[in-house]
Design a binder for these strands. Structure first.
Lengths: 163, 163
DNA sequence: ACTATATAATTTGACACCAAACTATCTTGC
DNA sequence: GCAAGATAGTTTGGTGTCAAATTATATAGT
């Protein structure tokens, strides 16, 4: 089982390899941190490429998707749920707003805050992104194969402990 | 062993959780891509914090460490081995050079290129970073527990396939 | 030899992220 | 009621990453 894609790396058996990824340098062979970083980067780039082909931004997906769940929410709530700092949402929300994918409504009870809501267009866009995200995730699942559950549980533990 | 860090997540047993990480939003519950992103971010932030306390930059570690292996190499080689785009090395190398951690020597056979070499200080700095990286990775391994091998193999497969 | 192509490194522009500082508003406590 | 502190959102500055365009130099082909 486990599909054994090997990654042997006998130090000279990796001369060429085109250019994309020169496989794993021996020094980092068993470094979880290194593999985690590189795998995440590869996954992100693949997803970004897929969304880019449709002229969408990868960062929109999580935001729009969360917004489909509750009819309206504040930037702070979004930030907590998406696991991103509040400050990173500012430009994304402006972007989404400029493109008419979300609407911002002032909160009558609190002048500092406002609520964000998907527009019809936003909902449509979310659906388009969902298709891409689904395909991407299916691909990841295929690669993980039967190890998916274990893999997922380790990731969840890492997040919880290192939060 | 395995330390059973659990993180059950019975859907309603995660209401509060202070504020850092609102645990996993239900929508992304079984999304590998989401978990991968968040876990990597958490891991990176933890490492950055550790290096930051010593007034070091996390990005230096991989570079310096690779340089300890071969006495000298070009930026392009470094880039391939580290799995990072050449363009991202420019500023890092300037930084390392400014601090006297590496030396750049013109290549007599090719005026376009140069070779990079660790200085004595650079070697010392690498050792300090190695201590931090070791501790970090040990922490990750503890969290992964007995699932470490499987986890690592999935990461390696992801990188290889999505490269 | 001389042009045409390939390569090394840098620059520029884009995106994702965090953390600390700042502004405006709301809430507390006296 | 009003000053002190908390909170919402934005701004600014820093990190890490990629990709495309640029510049300089090497190599190939004719």
């Amino acid at each position: 089982m486990t599909a054994k894609l090997a990654i042997e790396q006998t130090d000279d058996a990796r001369a060429s390899s085109k250019g994309a990824q020169d496989l794993i340098p021996a020094i980092f062979q068993d470094r979880l941190g290194y593999h985690l970083r590189v795998a995440q980067e590869a996954s992100f780039q693949a997803f970004a490429k897929a969304t880019g082909r449709a002229d969408l931004k990868p960062g929109w997906y999580a935001l729009l998707t969360v917004l489909t769940e509750r009819d309206s929410m504040t930037p702070s709530e979004l930030s907590r749920i998406c696991g991103r700092d509040r400050s990173t949402l500012t430009s994304s929300l402006k972007d989404l707003s400029d493109r008419g994918l979300i609407e911002r409504h002032p909160n009558p009870d609190d002048q500092r805050s406002y609520s964000v809501r998907l527009t019809e267009e936003g909902r449509g866009m979310q659906e388009r992104l969902q298709v891409i995200a689904d395909a991407h995730d299916r691909r990841l699942e295929e690669i993980a194969g039967e190890d998916k559950e274990v893999f997922l549980s380790v990731l969840a533990r890492l997040t919880a402990v290192l939060s």
